[in-house]
Nucleic acid binder design. Structure first.
Lengths: 332, 332
DNA sequence: TTGAAAGCGCTAACAT
DNA sequence: ATGTTAGCGCTTTCAA
């Protein structure tokens, strides 16, 4: 039998409330009693039952995490940083993969709310926001990471996507490229990246040619297909900005397969700075998101929210950094 | 206020036990009452509180997952497959990163046991096994995936590591390679891979040269260092078997940097068939683990164990498959 | 400084 | 077919 607070009390020859006080360091107990209780806990290898404690209004020390897909290296790194910080603060993380699918998002949300979790971190797209709104109204602490929902007042941590897109585009521009194409993922975070691309091109008084903007999903295969399409164009681009590393990896594959050299014939820039960016060949020039900091920050915001529901929400935009590697070169 | 079984009962004008019966479809209730209750649940948007239910001896529907590092693509894929199957069966997954560190393993185990989880899946190394033994004795369902502890009687799902190692080595042998080196990770699962390597070499009556066996950790950087070491040898290997894709990616980097062509000068074989194996250039020949099946199987074993503690444990060895890509070639 | 007792939301045995 | 009731392990007044 698992030891309970009763068995500990019995073993120590005190009442259960005394044991509870010792555990939580509340009330006042004599040094002697405290020692007895600790001994009993050790002897029985007692661990308080969090479920029972949470029934009495305490917290569960569990945080729900909704990601599109943990096997996507970017989200794996996000998850890691979140779990690290959570553990430091004594929280466990419940992992949910939504595939950005509205049905799954809904299912998980209901699953999580019946699990009495203390808060939710969302990295999933949530194209339908009413569900989140509902939880927000109920006062369940929620925070967003690497995804934004502008119309909702909600704690958010993202990289500055606009700045990232601008960084990537203007770097290609500075290299002398004029025919630059972009492959974006069809999610909210990519909108500012595309916008920055447009702005940078306009500032440089350069046109975005027909068919130079491709919207697709975050898969290597999709990047591959997009690149084949772009590189088959009459006027093919000399540089491609792929809005995440997965897409960029596909672009590199396609370009090589079609006989183009990287970076001599085509420059490629990615986004995220995942492991992939160091295993492609040439290694990928990419926009780095400060994932460690983002994960830590989002948990800090969430736990702050759990303590006292703040009247205002915070929106953190961390700065991206361009990692120049070998997939980009000056136009000859 | 969160609705409780009481509020539902009141709303529906019945007793709480009737509501409970409706929820669990037990006892007998009239169609009419059932409908009333469902309506009330919907109206209040009621979700049963799992914590409270679990207090009464029911299950928590939570599975703990211990992986070394979720940001390692292999474990990310393992985690994904585990979560998928868990969700199908109505379980949530609590994610824990141990870094194969004994301290963290211990901490998480104690954290998980006080969380009243229904079972634990372990992919972490657990060099010290007494902790697991303790849980096993307590009757907590545990299952291992992609890691083995031969001396413990415990449900286990792994790829046939010996066969995988044999597959890789004999493929290189069949290509005419004679000077083959190996880089292994210093964990249990790699022991049979190394053993198979030795056996295959012996059967081919080929020696394993001095310094041709390198033991290290699963990091790109370590693979890189290992390869630099190997390729600097007087008698350098013509083929390198890296016991996971991360190491193999490092090997490819080092080889290229030193001016060797792959596969012309050096053949490289990896293990795991993660995303990385398709983003390296050339793409990596590697031993594929059937991750989807492994994840599903381990959850099936675990849930079976949760229902009735079987007197015997199962050990599943799934077959690996060699994925031949472009990093290997016949010796000229 | 300590202990008794009420109840958190729920299930299940037992009554009706 | 439906309701009453006794806890599950714990926290937290309140009383001693």
């Amino acid at each position: 039998m698992k030891p309970t607070i009763h068995s500990v009390a019995q073993e120590a020859g005190v009442s259960i409330s005394t044991v509870s006080k010792v555990i939580h360091n509340t009330g006042s107990i004599s040094e002697q009693t405290r020692k007895k209780v600790f001994q009993a806990m050790n002897k029985l290898n007692y661990h308080p039952d969090v479920a029972a404690a949470s029934l009495r209004g305490k917290k569960t020390k569990v945080i729900g995490l909704l990601v599109p897909d943990i096997s996507n290296p970017f989200y794996a790194e996000v998850a890691r940083s979140i779990e690290d910080r959570s553990r430091e603060l004594g929280f466990n993380v419940m992992m949910c993969n939504t595939d950005n699918d509205a049905e799954k998002e809904k299912e998980y949300l209901s699953l999580l709310t019946s699990q009495r979790i203390d808060g939710i971190v969302v990295a999933s797209a949530f194209r339908s926001t009413d569900l989140l709104e509902g939880l927000l109204e109920k006062g369940i602490p929620i925070a967003l990471i690497a995804s934004e929902i502008p119309k909702l007042s909600i704690d958010t941590v993202t990289v500055d996507d606009y700045q990232g897109g601008y960084l990537a585009t203007s770097y290609l521009l500075s290299l002398g490229h004029k025919r630059i194409a972009i492959i974006v993922e069809n999610v909210r975070s990519n909108i500012p990246r595309l916008e920055a691309f447009r702005d940078a091109m306009e500032e440089a008084e350069l046109p975005i040619l027909d068919g130079y903007i491709i919207k697709t999903e975050a898969m290597i295969q999709k990047g591959y297909e997009g690149a084949r399409q772009l590189l088959s164009l009459q006027e093919r681009p000399t540089a491609i900005f792929a809005c995440n590393d997965l897409l960029a990896a596909g672009v590199i594959q396609a370009a090589k397969e079609m006989g183009f050299n990287i970076p001599e014939d085509v420059s490629v820039v990615g986004f995220d700075n995942t492991v992939l960016s160091t295993t492609t060949s040439p290694m990928l020039t990419t926009v780095a998101q400060p994932v460690k900091e983002m994960g830590a920050k989002v948990i800090d915001l969430l736990t702050k929210e759990m303590q006292t529901s703040k009247p205002y929400k915070e929106r953190l935009l961390l700065s991206p950094e361009l990692m120049v590697r070998q997939s980009t070169a000056a136009l000859p």
